[in-house]
């Protein structure tokens, strides 16, 4: 399998506050990598760096061999290869669901409208929201909005999808429908990088787990089941123990 995303010696700081220290990570095509770690450990910032939403102080990120650099003209081309879904389900409130989804394919990729609409319709059908295509975001529940946001990212045909705690702001009963959608995506062979606090989901979906604490990768393993049973570092052990109530 080929390397799709490569991060070497990534260093990121906000002023004097070092957020990410010497991060190295390679993601192959078709791989699903789940990033976990305590709040404020830098995992969301890491995803934002990958999409050029943050400037790096040091290190190189490449997607498909092309460098990701914020504030360069090429970044808009590169971002089309990288789909991103945010925690706060931000659809564009002044547009219908369908218009939200086809905006970037039409305006950025200059695709044929009929074709974009056809594909959007198919994808909406897949996530069970076809009947909502003419609704406005304010008429949807959080879970529905988040699924639309996923479809919106998918229609750009990205090589890799980034999910930044997409269920963290949802009511519990809506978490499931969004995770189901993501699981189906993972099974269909999409390359995904997921930041989440849903441990059961992480266990089910991940090919590899990356545990980040205080801006560093502390543990990284493809033995997903083992990691959740018996993590090898004490920091990961301590973190995982916060999810059980005994």
């Amino acid at each position: 399998m080929s390397e799709l995303l490569k991060v070497t010696h990534l260093h990121k700081e906000f002023g004097k506050n070092v957020v990410l220290k010497d991060i190295n990570l390679t993601v192959k095509k078709g791989e699903v990598v789940v990033i976990i770690g305590p709040s404020g450990c830098g995992k969301s910032t890491f995803l934002r760096c990958l999409n050029g939403l943050e400037e790096l102080q040091d290190g190189v990120i490449t997607v498909d061999g092309l460098p990701v650099e914020a504030n360069k003209r090429e970044i808009t081309k590169l971002r089309q290869k990288i789909g991103m879904v945010f925690q706060s389900y931000e659809l564009f409130p002044h547009m219908s669901v369908l218009d939200n989804i086809i905006l970037a394919p039409l305006k950025v990729q200059r695709r044929n409208k009929e074709e974009a609409v056809r594909e959007a319709t198919e994808l909406l059908d897949k996530v069970g929201l076809l009947d909502k295509k003419d609704y406005f975001p304010r008429q949807l529940s959080g879970g529905q909005k988040q699924r639309v946001a996923i479809v919106r990212a998918l229609l750009m045909h990205p090589d890799i999808l980034l999910f930044d705690e997409v269920t963290a702001a949802l009511d519990p009963e809506m978490v499931h429908e969004v995770l189901e959608t993501m699981l189906a995506l993972a099974r269909s062979g999409s390359t995904m990088l997921i930041v989440t606090h849903e441990m059961a989901f992480a266990k089910a979906v991940a090919d590899r787990i990356v545990f980040i604490d205080k801006g560093e990768i502390v543990e990284e393993t493809t033995d997903v089941a083992d990691f959740f049973k018996e993590p090898s570092t004490p920091r990961a052990k301590k973190f995982l123990s916060t999810f059980t109530y005994e």
């Binding site: 971002r79 002044h94 750009m156």
Partner: peptide, 27 residues
């Protein structure tokens, strides 16, 4: 207008002009 509106547009590959024209100005 929330920062994520800008970022959602950027994440979809829109440049500054497209972001302001299609997403920010109408709102």
């Amino acid at each position: 207008i929330s920062k994520v509106q800008f970022e959602s547009a950027y994440a979809l590959g829109m440049d500054k002009v497209q972001t302001y024209w299609y997403v920010i100005s109408p709102q």
